[in-house]
Amino acid sequence: MSVVVELIGVRKAFHEGRPGELWAVDGIDLAVAPGQVTVFTGPSGSGKTTLLTLIGCLARPTEGRIRLDGEEVSGLPERFVTDLRRRTFGFVFQQFNLIRGLSVLENVMLPAYPLAPHYPALRRRAERLLAHFGLGPRRDAQVEWLSGGEAQRTAIARALINDPPVVIADEPTANLDSQLSTAFLDIVAELRDQGRTVLLTSHDPLVYEAPVVDRIVAVRDGRLVS
């Protein structure tokens, strides 16, 4: 279940070599221990989200390498990266990115495709996750009808459908009140207890000062702040 994440001299540029070139991540060396909750903090534009997209293999670095369990993954051919991403990471996006027009259950099942197990087995797994997060009665509701907390729990259930060892959440409490943020941290503690590595970005003290957090990594101008 546990995965060691290592970043070696990672840099990421946008508009490289063109006007407006921006180094969002500028030389980061970092090792994230498995089974821990790590929070990346820093002001807006500091490179936290870019860093998470690089770790989650949603983007490739401009320079440097990323390793998962010792295997260099940032240079893998795309077909392997897709498979690795599917098996290793679950994503909870800041705006949750639920697919409107689909039900809660369908949204949760979606990341399992196109390699999904038989439909009944997948559906049972999705229903178990929804029941676990208190969304059982809402499984057939359209996602646009959900409250903020329900949408977030749906997004978390969706992130867990492939049983990933690493869960990545980008500003997960940005749109939630304190009560829902606390409930989210309870879920994070549960994920850690299951042995999963949890990587969060947040500039919410409620999150990074929470007891469940093992490590805080401060980022500014694309670099780690010592």
Partner: peptide
């Protein structure tokens, strides 16, 4: 050079 993380190597991979 597959072991290098140099920008040129990453460009070649892409």
């Amino acid at each position: 050079d597959r072991n290098s993380g140099h920008a040129r190597q990453i460009r070649l991979e892409r």
